[in-house]
Amino acid sequence: MQEGVQIADPARRSMLLTALYIAQEQYGYLTKDAIERVANRLRLPVADVYSMASFYSLYRTEPTGRYVLQVCEGLSCHLVGGADRLVDYLQKKLGLEVGQTTRDGLFTLETVQCLASCGTSPAMRVNDALYENMTPERIDELLETLRGYHV
């Protein structure tokens, strides 16, 4: 149940995006509990906080895998023959479609528009880390390494 709402102070509303981001880091994604806690802490309406969380694609209201693989589909990555090929390769290799998570909960595959790394395209991101000049071989290596942490 939501505690009281006190929307008078604009400073608290201005903290909302950061607070949601911190909550997401701690919870993995914005669970109902996380949203409620942010709302109560900032004394903002739950409906407002949920609206904000669902508006921005950077906030997740669904669980993801441990590693979120974001393959760039931007123009440069396309021109070097990267984007489509890498996405296809990852889909086959992981046995999933874009937007899905592997059954072991390790990997979620997503596409993004530009990672601002055109000079080293094709590029992809794993959580917050950038990986450049990607090829299927380098993807194999990368997945191997990541899996290695969870044996």
């Binding site: 939501q2 709402v5 109902k32 949203i35 739950v46 409906a47 609206s51």
Partner: peptide, 22 residues
Amino acid sequence: VANHTLGVRQRGAESMIQADMN
């Protein structure tokens, strides 16, 4: 009413009027 039940979730063509956390 100052009840703050309603909001809009998602954006663009996905936008929907919703209550609390959907």
